[in-house]
Design a protein around this nucleic acid. Structure first.
Length: 695
DNA sequence: GCTGGGTCAATCGT
DNA sequence: CACGATTGACCCAG
């Protein structure tokens, strides 16, 4: 492939060349489109006041917020140890952001004079409105700037309940990385929800929830691995997936919010030179190769000078220079591989593919004729398969590659719109015991909760922010799902639209009723029987599946327990360790702080047996640090409402990862006959937080 | 339902 | 301390 147009960098490049600085873009004044939104709707602020359906004591209580948070998070692996030590700090207590707009919530009226533009001019003339909007935008920008300035002082505020200790901010660990990522996404989801329901006036429109969420975290010091480093990053594992560039910034994997090459200057004896830290290959420069252990990475820099319309060569500076130096030093470089999201074509998924070293570099003629730097990165041996495994999984899904231990293409035999494959590359077992595949609940006639009002009367689909929709009302005014059917937050009960509703079946409030969306497979584990794993990367909050099966009563469960044990039982009356998944309101002080309980409070216990009838959920194993959680969901069918147990992704899940949830613990009183320890299973989840048993 | 151009933006080194 | 090179994420027109 080395042809005439290919020259080795070391031979013929004038490394002293310096690029001409030229602006690539120009800033234009922004005129907000604010007039329509102010005049729309019957209510002055765009939406009517409503009363939360939650119990009153579940509403925000800023007073004890610190303690509450600590308790709520202590259970999951997302709270750094140091963050639990909350010493009194007057700074933290009075750290009030400058509010630059009025909240749309009546009870959250802005009292701060500074930057308060208010909405009292709503009835003024259009010019006045436009001016106010412009001022609002101005204030918004000032706010962000001020946030930036405050970072150094606020960022060190480790006494804040949400902050991270200075030590962990420099060098993280797995727990902290997970905590930061989950906090980021919880806020991002909430911002999307607010934006989609138009609870914010259009001047405050959050076009980029990812950036706003990241800004909130940076201001509060919820970051980790801020020390820039060569090589591996503590707490980040090869194969981890990310859905936004900002996520990688926040956990110190790749410090550039946009740039593909991250580098830093390091000082040696009297010498200072740039070295590369990480590169993101996102497919825009066709740097793909057949061999997944090799990455041909293109240098940065335009090949076309827009000013004088001349073809230019890339210069050996910035990222290119850093890559060159790293090559000479034989430094490790982290590689992040990006691919289009198959579920959401406009989005991208990034996977950390481990450490590489530059083996070769040269200059090639690009399509426009200008010189382009090329770096051949080779993956270091001994690392777990990540990107390669992902690509292989894609081939399996496409059916273009055969595989070891393949038993069945579709275990659901067409019941699911996406096939569920069955594989065993561990031993000779040909498959799990016989059962009937069924997607939902089979319930006795006696079961069901009759509700006075059934179903909404929306025509077409239910729209977020439409408070006339009775289903949205039942959800406390919130639409439970954000774009891409991502669950925004956990609640004791979520109300979906159902067959009784008049909205179309494609209404976005029926996420749990449309079947699985991920490619999954049932596989034989080494020590836990059959398990369920995903072939697709899964975003936090994604619907996975319902726990399908037969609704049974406790008497029947006990009968089963005495004979051969029913291992395929879901029982809501078990004890489930609480964990925090929803957004932390104190990170969104300037926007809105509606909190809902994350406790499981099922009115009457629900027991589902998937022994004879069930879906993929029956294969999900237990873990003490799971990546999936369950959420009760209610909707009406046949004049009755039923609770369904529905699983969602707790965090981002890489392809080929096993899906697990917490089975909970059977209360001693229920372990009828047999003594508690005997009724319980030894846990093989292998997590650091393993309780040792479950069930 | 896809593509392509336009817009606005966070970061860290210069 | 301000600036600028980088190209992501999203939106809307075609």
């Amino acid at each position: 492939m080395m042809e005439d147009n290919t020259v080795h960098a070391s031979d013929s490049v004038d490394k002293s060349k310096i690029i001409e600085a030229k602006p690539l873009r120009s800033l234009a004044p922004v005129v907000p489109k604010c007039i329509q939104s102010f005049s729309s709707g019957n209510y002055p602020y765009g939406f009517p006041p409503f009363y939360s359906l939650e119990k009153p004591h579940e509403n925000p209580i800023p007073k004890g917020a610190q303690e509450t948070h600590v308790n709520a998070t202590a259970t999951e692996e997302d709270t750094p140890v140091d963050a639990k030590v909350t010493k009194e700090s007057p700074v933290a207590a009075k750290a009030t952001p400058i509010r630059f707009y009025k909240s749309s919530h009546d009870e959250e009226v802005n009292t701060q004079a500074d930057g308060d533009v208010g909405l009292e001019g709503l009835n003024g003339d259009l010019d006045d409105k436009r001016k106010r909007c412009a001022k609002n935008v101005q204030n918004c920008k000032e706010f962000l700037k001020r946030n930036k300035k405050n970072r150094e002082t606020q960022g060190d505020d480790s006494s804040s309940s949400v902050g991270i200790s200075p030590l962990l901010k420099d060098d993280g660990d797995r727990e902290t990385v997970t905590h930061v990522l989950m906090t980021f996404d919880s806020i991002r989801r909430r911002l999307c929800q607010l934006e989609e329901s138009k609870e914010l006036s259009s001047v405050l429109a959050i076009k980029r929830a990812d950036l706003r969420a990241s800004n909130a975290l940076t201001c509060k010091g919820v970051r980790t691995n801020m020390r820039r480093r060569v090589g591996e990053v503590p707490g980040i594992e090869v194969g981890d997936v990310f859905f936004f560039r900002m996520e990688m910034c926040l956990v110190g994997l790749h410090g550039q919010s946009m740039g593909g090459i991250d580098y830093t200057n390091i000082k040696d004896e009297a010498q200072e030179e740039p070295v590369a830290l990480s590169v993101v290959s996102s497919g825009v420069y066709d740097d793909d190769t057949e061999d997944n252990n090799i990455l041909i990475y293109s240098g940065q820099g335009e090949n076309f000078n827009k000013k004088d319309k001349h073809v230019t060569d890339q210069k050996l500076q910035r990222g290119n220079l850093a890559l060159d130096k790293s090559s000479q030093r034989h430094n490790e470089i982290r590689v992040i591989r990006g691919l289009r999201d198959a579920m959401n074509r406009s989005a991208k998924i990034y996977m950390y593919d481990g450490l590489y070293k530059i083996q070769d570099s040269w200059i090639e003629r690009g399509k426009s004729g200008g010189g382009v730097f090329k770096y051949k990165l080779v993956r270091l041996p001994g690392q777990p398969s990540a990107f390669a495994a992902w690509r292989l999984a894609q081939k399996w899904m496409a059916g273009s590659s055969s595989r070891n231990g393949f038993i069945l293409a579709d275990l659901s035999t067409g019941a699911e719109s996406i096939p569920v494959s069955l594989v065993n590359d561990v031993d000779g077992e040909k498959g799990p015991a016989f059962f009937t595949y069924f997607q939902s609940l089979k319930k006795p006639k006696s079961f069901g909760i009759v509700q006075p009002s059934l179903g909404c009367h929306c025509n077409k689909a239910c729209v977020p922010g439409d408070l006339n929709c009775s289903c949205i009302q039942r959800n406390g005014g919130d639409f439970p799902y954000a774009a891409n059917s991502i669950l925004v937050g956990r609640k004791p009960l979520i109300h979906e639209c159902g067959p009784m509703c008049q909205c179309f079946p494609n209404c976005k409030n029926r996420v749990s009723q449309t079947g699985i969306k991920q490619h999954m497979e049932v596989f034989k584990t080494k020590n836990r029987g059959w398990g369920l794993r995903t072939l697709d990367p899964i975003r936090a909050g994604s619907f996975i599946c319902e726990y399908a099966g037969e609704v049974i009563d406790r008497a029947k469960l006990c009968r089963n327990t005495e004979g051969d044990r029913d291992e395929y039982v879901f029982d809501t009356s078990r004890i489930y360790e609480p964990f925090k998944w929803n957004y932390e309101p104190s990170l969104l002080e300037d926007i809105s702080s509606k909190v809902s309980s994350e406790d499981y409070t099922i009115p009457s216990p629900l027991i589902i047996s998937a022994k004879n009838v069930g879906n993929v959920a029956r294969f999900m194993n237990h873990s003490c640090s799971p990546n999936v959680f369950w959420q009760p969901i209610l909707y009406a069918e046949n004049n009755q409402s039923f609770i369904h147990i529905v699983f969602f992704a707790l965090r981002h899940i890489p392809p080929m990862a096993e899906l697990t949830y917490d089975y909970g613990i059977v209360p001693d009183g229920h372990a009828k006959g047999s003594s508690a320890p005997r009724g319980r299973n030894k846990c093989f989840c292998g997590s650091a937080k393993c309780r040792g048993f479950f069930g």
